[in-house]
Simulated assay, not measured.
Amino acid sequence: MAQRVRQGLAEKRTAIVCGARRVFGRDGYTRTSIDAIAKEADVSTRTIYNHFPGGKAEVFRVVVEEGAAQVVQAHLDALDRRLHKVTDLEADLIAFIQAWAEPADRFPDHFAVARQLRAEVGHIPQELVDAWRRSGPQRSIEAAAGRFRELADEGLLDAPDPLRAAHHLFHLTLGEVNDRTCMGALPLPDQERTELITAGVRAFLRGYLPR
């Protein structure tokens, strides 16, 4: 009996988080209400407050943190699969960036929330913005910087500031991709995406290959 109750509670929580993610991604933080989340999740507002006593702010924090954790894991997998052992630096970096960008297609609801967060950043409590950064973008970029530090130690990159180098690589390769797709909201042909990433990697290497 107790196990069934726990399973039921877990299922309700999952329904709330998934429903809230869809609503936040569609309507943004400021326009979303607990009533809208309850309707989307097919639960009562009381059920939401039973799981999340902090109301909308707590639901939003959980939504962005859990979604960001999935993206970070995908980024760690990309680092492990594509940069664990480098044999052709240019080709491996291109494959790495392509793998790094895959979560945008795998987790569209999360990235819809991220787009809304960026658009409304001045109207969202700072602690929620900080929670998103800590749980997602900051962890991902720091993981990439750690691998870049190792590549520099191996003599493959001249990167005295690995964190800055990681930022440069992502801006050069995915900056235009994000601009053309409006942060993943619009489609981009695979060939065009590959061309943009390739051009960015080559520009990066002109600045970071050892002299």
Score class of each variant (00 low, 15 high):
Met1Lys: 03
Ala2Ser: 03
Arg4Lys: 01
Arg4Ile: 00
Val5Ala: 10
Gln7Pro: 01
Leu9Ala: 04
Arg13Gln: 08
Thr14Glu: 09
Ala15Arg: 13
Ala15Phe: 05
Ala15Cys: 05
Arg22Ser: 05
Arg26Lys: 06
Gly28Tyr: 00
Gly28Met: 00
Ala36Thr: 05
Lys39Glu: 10
Glu40Phe: 07
Asp42Gln: 08
Val43Arg: 10
Ser44Pro: 08
Ser44Arg: 08
His51Trp: 01
Phe52Asp: 03
Val63Met: 01
Glu65Trp: 03
Ala68Lys: 05
Gln73Cys: 11
Gln73Tyr: 09
Ala74Asp: 13
Ala78Ile: 03
Asp80Gly: 03
Arg82Glu: 10
Leu83Asn: 05
Thr87Tyr: 06
Glu90Gln: 11
Ile94Asp: 06
Ala101Cys: 06
Ala101Gly: 06
Glu102Tyr: 07
Ala104Asp: 02
Phe111Pro: 12
Arg115Phe: 01
Gln116Leu: 00
Arg118Tyr: 02
Val121Cys: 08
Val121His: 09
His123Lys: 09
Leu128Lys: 12
Arg134Asp: 14
Pro137Gln: 15
Pro137Tyr: 15
Glu142Asn: 13
Gly146Val: 07
Phe148Gln: 10
Leu151Tyr: 11
Leu151Asp: 10
Asp153Met: 14
Asp153Glu: 14
Gly155Arg: 05
Leu156Gln: 09
Asp158Arg: 13
Ala159Thr: 11
Ala159Pro: 12
Pro160Glu: 14
Pro162Asp: 15
Leu163Cys: 12
His167Pro: 15
Phe170Gly: 11
Leu172Asp: 13
Leu172Lys: 13
Asn178Ser: 12
Arg180Ala: 13
Gln191Tyr: 01
Thr194Glu: 10
Glu195Trp: 02
Ile197Asp: 04
Ala199Cys: 00
Gly200His: 06
Ala203Cys: 03
Phe204Ile: 00
Leu205Ser: 01
Arg206Lys: 08
Pro210Thr: 10
Pro210Asn: 07
